[in-house]
Write a protein that binds this DNA or RNA. Structure first.
Lengths: 121, 121, 121, 121
DNA sequence: GTGGTCTAGACCACC
DNA sequence: GTGGTCTAGACCACG
């Protein structure tokens, strides 16, 4: 589990997403204990408070649960994480399309642009 | 010329982009006078200071020029606007790909996702 | 609007509740602007971050909305605040009853105890 | 003797209270031996350290006494347990009233609310 | 050692 | 001036 962060975007939601991805793809299993807040903060090179906030988000969503004094654990129901992830992907794509259209491209042009982008990579 | 703003994103760069698009696609022609700061602010429903800052950006980039007491005008060379627009499109697409990959999709999955999105719209 | 805080309980939820009460009882009206984060922090004698967190909670619940650079405002629909308030009252009462029963009192004893308490006040 | 715990509140004081209640209502008699720390921990499903700390509290209050190597026993004077219990009940009720008033209810409304609650149960 | 809460103070973009 | 985000570091109760 690696904490690859994009410094141009808010860190907190990125942490949230990374955990969601890890749960969705099986890197983190049901009931598994996450690293401690402090440990994540150390590995990711960010402030423990930022990590704390991200875990609070995940707990509020029901994706993990925290036990005082013992740590945070992956919730029994992984579907919430998966749904959240899909929702995020969908939202981001919607935003992307909205922005591209605001920049003057129509649906086909966007599709073509994405395909070209894919080839040049 | 309409000022369709996404309230979830910073206003100022959106205004900048809208003018770029208008110039690139011919809605605004070389030498044409833009609406006044106040008028734009009124139509777009935003703070005049924000409009002012957006126009300053455009002038700094050489996309428009301001004549004291008479207003702002589209620069003679529309290529700057076009290049700026392309650069923005490219940057946004790069960001989109980076985010989707962070969310666990590979290049092909992104391409397919975009195509499906296109169809369902 | 006064910020009377019980120092034996977490401050953040107390702030949340105070705003809910103010909205529910009409001290704060629909669309009305709240004091700034910094001002509330000053008046209440707490840290601005704590206030910020409380307002984030309220925004997440749809009770207020924040406009970047201009402040926080009471949401159009005051019913959410009222419902939230009722829910809190109900939850607290449920907790109180559960605790009293764990302490060996039955429903009638609790009722009598509350009535006596009322008289002696 | 059952260890019914509310997971939303600190475990340690709950254990303390349960023993107080058991002594006050006669489930535990003067001089009677309590279960061992390990046994209580097992039955209650909590950490033995937590049980140990709760028993230390009770001993400090004079409600039980420990004999090295043989266990903990109910103190000769049960009145301390009873008084402690009453004090806790009183404190909780005071807290409850304070919170309800902070939530906008006056004494009469609280009384009525409690009575209705009683009926609907 | 753990999470939970709070304080203090900084920086940013936006209005 | 505003809210939004982050850092730094402290204290507490719980396990």
């Amino acid at each position: 589990m690696q904490w690859k962060l994009d410094k141009d975007r808010p860190i907190c939601p990125q942490l949230t997403e990374i955990v969601c991805v890890a749960i969705a793809n099986g890197t983190l299993e049901t009931g598994q204990k996450l690293m401690s807040v402090r440990e994540i903060a150390l590995q990711a090179g960010v402030n423990p408070n930022t990590v704390q906030k991200a875990l609070e988000n995940l707990e509020r969503l029901g994706i993990i649960y925290s036990v005082r004094g013992s740590g945070s654990f992956v919730s029994d129901d992984k579907s919430v994480a998966k749904n959240t992830l899909e929702r995020i992907i969908s939202e981001r794509t919607a935003e992307y399309f909205a922005q591209m259209k605001a920049l003057g491209l129509d649906s086909n042009e966007i599709k073509n642009y994405v395909e070209e982008w894919n080839e040049n990579e």
